[in-house]
Amino acid sequence: MERRKDSKGKVLKDGESQRKDGIYQYRWTDKTGKRHTIYAKDLKVLREKENNANKIISQGIDFEGGKITTYQFLIRYYEFKKTSIKKSSLKTYYTTTNKLKDTSIGNTKIIDVKISDAKQLIIDLSQNGLKYSTIKTIKTLIKAAFKMAQEDDLILKNPFDFQLNEVIKNDTKKRVALTEQQYSDLLEFVLCDRVFRKYYDDIVFLYETGIRVSEFCGLTLSDIDFVKHEVVIDKQLIKTSKGELYITDPKSKAGFRTIPLSAEAYHAIKAIINRRPQTNEMMVDGYCGFISIHSNGTPKTAWNIEYELREIAKAYNSLYPECQLPNLTPHVLRHTFCTRKVSSGMNIKAVQYLMGHSSVQITLDVYTSIDADMIKTEFAKVAQM
C-alpha cells in the first residue's frame, strides 16, 4: 500500500496529514478514546511537536491537562493554596500572577513552556525595572506552581528550575547596620528635637529587641510582663493596600517567642504606654489595647513607623551632611540588633530565637554585617590567647 505524501513529495507517517491550505497536522487517540490534534506550518516542526507529545504520553503525562496556559494554571494553583497560606502571602501570589497576564509566557500552555522562555521572562522583568529581590520572589512562586504541575504529571520538567543569578545580576544592596556612634548620634538628635522626640522610645525599643515592625505594631498591653521584664510575640498587625487592618500569626512558627527586655527596652516600653492617648480604641480581629496608637484610637502600622524614621533620617542628614546616616528603617534597627548580638559572642542559636528566624542560616547569611572595627576587635581577642 502506497504511503501518503505531502505537497513536496515527502512520505507522511501514520497520523500525519496535510490540509489543503498547506498546514500539517498530527492526530492520535489517547487511552480514554479521546482524539487529539496538533498543527504546524512545516513537517519538521510538526514532527518535533509529535515527538514531544509521544514522549510526554509515554511517561504518563496528562497531555490534555498540560494545555492550560501558565496564567490559568497559576490562578488554579493559588486557589488551591489559599486555605493554607497567610492573607499577605496570597496577595503577593495574585500580584505576581497579574504581572504575567498579558505576557507571552502567561498565554503559553504550560506543556510548551521551555527553560529559555522562563529565562526570557526574567530578563524582561529586569529590563522593565523590577528589583532583583522582587524578581526572585516572582520566580520562586512560579517555580512552586510548576512543581505542582510536574507532580501532577502535567509537564515533564520544571522550566523555572535554574539559578536566578545565572540570568541576571544580583544588584541587591547589602544591608548596613548602624555603628554604635551612629546610633548614639541618632538618639541625641531625636531627643533634642521638639518634633521628633516623641519617637525616641519607639526607636530604642526596636533597637533593643530586634522585633519586626509589624510585631511591634501588633503588641498589646497584655503582651508585656513588667514583673518578669519580658514581651510575648505571638501576632503581627498588617495593613492592606486598601487601608484595612488585620491580625495574623508571626512570619513563621519560629516567630512565636518570648523576648527578655533590657533595661533600656523596659523603660522605653513603659514610656510608650504612659504616652498612650486616652481615647476610644479600635478593635482589630478581637484585639484592642495596642501599645502604639494614634490620637483617634487606631493602632499605628508599619507604614507609620517607616515614615517617621524616614523623616528623621532626612532631617538629620540635611543638618549633618558630613556624617550621613544610612537608609534608616525599622528593618535596619532589627538588622543592627542581630549584628550586635552576633558580634558580642552570643550563641547563634540564641540569636536565631530572639530574631524569630526559621533557620540559623538566615541569621548568619542575611542579617549580620561585619565592619573593619569588628574585625580588629575579634583579631585582638585571638592574639591575646
Rank of each mutant, 00 (worst) to 15 (best):
C288Q: 15
D371P: 05
T258E: 04
Q25M: 10
I370Y: 08
C338M: 02
V360D: 06
K5H: 07
G218W: 04
L130W: 03
D102N: 10
I75Q: 02
D223F: 00
D62G: 08
A263N: 15
A313S: 03
S58I: 01
L219H: 02
A263Y: 15
Y246I: 03
F337V: 02
N158G: 08
D193Y: 02
K139T: 04
N274H: 07
K119F: 13
K143M: 13
T301Y: 04
T140F: 14
K228M: 08
N347S: 14
Y320W: 07
F216W: 13
I142M: 06
K381Y: 10
G33F: 09
G129E: 06
E208Y: 06
K157H: 10
S358T: 12
G345H: 11
Q324A: 04
C338A: 13
L364F: 15
G255A: 11
I211M: 13
I23K: 02
V195N: 05
D249G: 08
K82P: 00
E16L: 05
G33V: 13
Q352T: 01
G66M: 01
S17W: 00
E244I: 12
Y367H: 05
Y24H: 11
I238W: 12
K341S: 10
Q352A: 13
G286Y: 01
V351M: 14
F256C: 13
K147P: 04
S58P: 13
D124W: 12
E151T: 07
F379V: 09
I312F: 06
L125Y: 09
Y200I: 00
